[in-house]
């Protein structure tokens, strides 16, 4: 993200392609989204960011024969 330099960003440790959480986990998706929307106001300077503590709560997501897991805590 340091290279991309987005104005403000939120980090969540979801596997690629599942940014708001596990499919069907509506409560968690809503909480992730609320945290992201809250960050619009709380981030006050360019490049500011929030790292969310959510963990992936399902088996790895299968993709081309490989299980995708949550990302590192960047």
């Amino acid at each position: 993200m340091q290279a991309v330099k987005p104005p403000r960003w939120t980090f969540v440790r979801s596997p690629r392609g599942s940014m708001f959480g596990e499919p069907g986990n509506r409560d968690k998706q809503r909480r992730v989204l609320l945290d992201v929307l809250t960050a619009f106001a709380t981030i006050q300077e360019p490049g500011g960011h929030v790292k969310l503590a959510y963990r992936w709560e399902a088996p790895p997501v299968m993709y081309r024969g490989t299980g995708l897991r949550e990302g590192p805590n960047a």
Binding site: G17, S18, M19, G21, E22, P23, G24, Q29, V61, L68
Partner: peptide, 13 residues
């Protein structure tokens, strides 16, 4: 990306 996840629940993306 694993397209089946979004097809299962578009709210993930």
């Amino acid at each position: 990306i694993p397209e089946h996840v979004a097809r299962q629940d578009m709210n993930t993306v």
